Amino acid sequence: MRVVPLTPDLWPALEALFGKQGACMGCWCMYWRLPRKDWDAARGAKAKAMFKRRVAQDAPPGVLAFDGDVAVGWLQIGPRADTPQWNGARRVSAPMHDADVADERIWAATCFYVKSSARGQGVMDALLAGALKFAKKNGARVVEACPIDGRASAGAAYVGRVTTFERAGFKEIARRKENRPLMRLTLKR
């Protein structure tokens, strides 16, 4: 399995992975990027167009996992500032310190999508390993995540699973909800 940053030339692979609906009810990885009322209005085709522009104009917003030439998984990762809704003060994923949002070296691994036929084959682990290399190469000092702890459907586990992050060396730094720890991995001191 190979994991690479999502660049404009790989858009067709992401589009094929997400399918017509855009993964997760038309999200197109805009849920954490838009205020809720804007996201509700954008779901589907508008969200797709917004995310496609984002991929074309900015640094890669995450990584794709490939099995041969077929994309089988996606992980959105980047500076916390890129996903303002993930930083909401009442969210379980809220930063420990307000200044963390503006620090371009503090990144967030916000959401996974794994093709149903590839689940249970280590795709999340591969995505996270590739994403951490990508983050370190691009100046991240810290990566945070807020995964599911315990049993959950594949849909509910779009934020990742605690065990995946533990295997990668993440440590719990807060728990604001019983099954959703905020976890952190320090890449550089």
Rank of each mutant, 00 (worst) to 15 (best):
M1G: 15
V3L: 05
V3T: 12
V3N: 04
V4R: 14
P5N: 07
L6R: 02
P8M: 01
D9N: 01
L10G: 01
L10E: 07
W11H: 09
W11R: 12
P12E: 11
A13N: 10
E15G: 05
A16H: 11
A16S: 14
G19Y: 02
G19F: 02
K20R: 14
Q21E: 15
G22N: 09
M25D: 15
M25V: 07
M25A: 12
G26P: 11
C27M: 02
W28E: 09
C29F: 09
M30C: 14
M30Y: 08
Y31R: 01
Y31W: 09
W32F: 14
W32P: 01
P35S: 11
K37D: 14
K37T: 11
A41F: 09
G44D: 05
K46W: 03
K46P: 06
V55T: 01
V55D: 03
A56H: 01
P60I: 00
P61D: 03
G62K: 00
V63T: 10
A65Q: 08
F66K: 08
D69C: 04
A71W: 06
A71Q: 04
V72C: 12
G73A: 05
W74D: 02
W74S: 03
L75H: 06
L75M: 06
Q76G: 12
Q76R: 09
I77W: 00
P79N: 06
A81I: 15
T83R: 12
T83D: 04
P84W: 08
A89V: 14
R91I: 00
R91C: 02
S93G: 10
A94V: 15
A94R: 15
A94L: 14
P95V: 10
M96P: 02
H97V: 13
H97K: 15
D98I: 10
A99L: 09
D100K: 07
V101S: 13
A102L: 15
D103E: 12
E104Y: 02
E104N: 11
R105A: 15
W107M: 07
A108S: 15
A109V: 08
T110M: 08
C111T: 04
C111S: 09
F112P: 04
Y113K: 05
Y113R: 05
K115R: 14
S116W: 06
S116Y: 06
A118L: 10
R119I: 05
G122V: 02
G122T: 06
V123F: 00
V123K: 05
V123S: 03
V123P: 03
A126Y: 08
L127F: 00
L128M: 13
L128V: 05
L128S: 05
A129L: 05
G130D: 08
A131Q: 04
L132Y: 00
L132N: 00
L132T: 00
K136D: 14
R141C: 13
R141Q: 15
V142T: 15
V143N: 02
A145G: 09
I148N: 12
D149W: 12
G150Q: 03
G150N: 01
R151D: 10
A152I: 10
S153T: 15
A154V: 00
A154W: 06
G155H: 07
G155K: 09
A156F: 10
V159H: 12
V159E: 11
G160M: 02
V162P: 03
T163M: 04
T164C: 04
E166R: 13
A168R: 00
F170A: 03
E172I: 13
I173M: 01
I173F: 01
A174W: 07
R176E: 06
L182S: 08
M183S: 07
R184E: 11
L185E: 00
L187H: 03
